[in-house]
Computed example of a mutant assay.
Amino acid sequence: MNTKHSTPLEVRALLFDVLGTVVDWRSGIARQVSSFLERCGVVHVDAADFADTWSRLYDQATDAVRSGKRPFARLDVLNRENLEAAFKAVSIEPKLLPSADLDELNLAWHRLDPWPDSISGLTRLKSKFIIGPLSGGNTSLLLDMAKRAGLPWDVVLGSDVVEVYKPAPEAYLRTCEFLGLRPDQVLLVAAHNDDLAGARRCGMRTAFIPRPAEHGPSQTTDLAPLDDWDVIASDLVDLADKLGA
């Protein structure tokens, strides 16, 4: 793919991983968890560590769906279950906490801040391409996030539309089908090499954006591209430059 001055005409849409690539989930979750713990008088729990624990449980929950061990459930449902498991991991019995307060904290995933380059980069890319998320987030989560953060999506199709989680092939293929596009007409933008590998296996184009602070100062994964992705950019503004937007 020639990315210096132009993009092939067959690339009509850019789809984006959201959690980590477009928004800074760790800082946002840690901030909201910190406020929750302070209100509850809990002082022995580090909010950033709690955010990491809550996030790690995502993989286990979505693996259970992909493997058929449980039927599809929206990410809001999985996150709510995982929230209770995260509290148990820090020796706090969730049953002792008000259920309504836990429900509100679960919505922290709807209220995440974009990386500094996200809005300007997406706005430029929108001028040339159809843009939207390809995320594990359910549609209401992604819509709430977009409204709050100002993410200028053209279309929002959550995982509850395709009823499968990445990197299952159907997550990529069904989204392309909903858009009426062939996989090779769609480019996935992600900060995660495994996500891009899943998209490439389905015939999609790929673009890598590093987010070295996604997992905090000690991050060791996805610091660099691990394959010859079609486009490699330093951030979404640089991606817009490379795609001529």
Rank of each mutant, 00 (worst) to 15 (best):
R111Y: 10
G121E: 01
D101A: 14
D103C: 08
D154S: 13
K166H: 11
W109K: 06
G150P: 11
L125K: 06
K147V: 11
L105V: 10
A100W: 09
E84K: 15
L96C: 12
V164I: 14
K126T: 09
L157N: 13
L107H: 11
V156Y: 04
K147F: 05
F129H: 05
K147M: 09
I119Q: 03
L102W: 07
R124H: 05
D144F: 00
I131W: 04
A168K: 11
E163H: 12
N106F: 09
E163T: 13
V77N: 03
F87T: 10
I92P: 03
V161E: 15
L78T: 07
I130R: 13
R111W: 06
P114R: 03
A168E: 13
S118T: 15
L141S: 02
W153A: 07
G121K: 02
N82L: 01
L105P: 10
S118W: 01
I130H: 08
L151C: 01
L157S: 13
A149W: 09
R148C: 02
G137S: 10
G136T: 11
I92C: 02
N79G: 04
L102S: 11
S135K: 11
W109L: 05
N106C: 15
K88I: 06
L105R: 06
E93K: 15
A85M: 08
S99W: 06
L78Q: 10
L102D: 14
V90W: 08
A168N: 11
G136Y: 07
A85W: 03
A146E: 02
L141W: 00
W109G: 06
S127C: 00
I131Q: 09
E84V: 10
N82I: 00
I92S: 02
L96T: 15
M145F: 05
R111C: 10
T123Q: 14
E81G: 04
K128N: 12
